[in-house]
Design a protein around this nucleic acid. Structure first.
Ligand SMILES: [Mn+2]
Ligand SMILES: [Mn+2]
Ligand SMILES: [Zn+2]
Ligand SMILES: [Zn+2]
Lengths: 143, 143
DNA sequence: AAGCAACTGCAAATCTTTCGCAATTAGTGT
DNA sequence: ACACTAATTGCGAAAGATTTGCAGTTGCTT
């Protein structure tokens, strides 16, 4: 009954679809809307993709989920309850390394000092190559 | 005429469309394919958008231009001749602050030391808020 | 139980990027 | 200058991702 209040307290209705979307985002980390929809369909096959999109937007508006951009591809959602982290996204193999935001503090501070810029490292990923891909002559794949 | 050789050496042709696309990328900084097309149309109204896309890809393959992702929106292209820089993208007003890559060296080094990750800060922008937007109660706009 | 606004499913509309193909044309050699 | 050939272009259609209009359904309040 805990999440019942989470939604209602935000003035939202508690529909099965909405509950399931929130649960899916929490279980799948960094999931695309498509992936969320697949997950929800396991228990609620009739859900429509547009309902997933609308619920992701609604849940984001009330702060229960957040989106980030991990690379060339589309948006991904994660629960707000997760630790705030930056994403290192390997452009070769697609691996995502999570970096606690403290580890980036001195960098973001230097951007503030040097440019007056208040950095939000969680919103966009940091691109690059992971160790093993960097040591390879050719890129294994391009996700 | 330097790019003439760069193109021909790869077995590529120097067409008016291709020249104009390259020129447009060089003049417009951080331009979307759509913006490049608009610019080219000023002198070559008949150019097709798919031609612009194909030429941007071709020019990137030979290393004359590069793309980066600046925010929620689509891809943007800039000439390879520009200094390598990271982009600080204000999520409120859309302003882009360019940061020389040296200014980020200690951060990328720490990601290498801590995670074995070889960072490419030019490919994805860094999101956040510029000074003036940060000091505003409400976001002026969301580009 | 009734009423209403919020929500959902569905289909169609957008928007962005890609693709197939026939016609054109740049670069090469004659 | 002329011809040849493969690269390139324009065009329309296709594909993928996200949004929207609308009529019917349903959660929540009274
Ligand atoms: Mn990219
Ligand atoms: Mn975003
Ligand atoms: Zn990798
Ligand atoms: Zn700003």
């Amino acid at each position: 009954m805990a999440e019942k209040h989470e939604l209602r307290d935000k003035g939202l209705r508690l529909t099965p679809q909405r509950e399931l979307v929130l649960a899916a985002v929490r279980e799948l980390e960094h999931a695309t809307p498509e992936e969320v929809a697949e997950k929800v369909k396991l228990t609620h096959p009739g859900i429509n993709l547009s309902t997933v999109y609308r619920n992701l937007e609604t849940l984001e508006n009330v702060g229960l989920v957040q989106h980030s951009h991990l690379g060339h591809g589309g948006v991904r959602y994660h629960a707000s309850t997760e630790e705030i982290h930056a994403h290192l996204n390997c452009e070769s193999c697609g691996t995502i390394i999570e970096v606690p935001i403290d580890a980036t503090a001195s960098f973001t501070q230097s951007l503030l000092d040097g440019y007056g810029f208040h950095t939000d490292l969680a919103h966009l990923a940091i691109a690059g190559r992971c160790e093993s891909c960097f040591n390879m002559p050719e890129a294994p794949n391009k996700p």
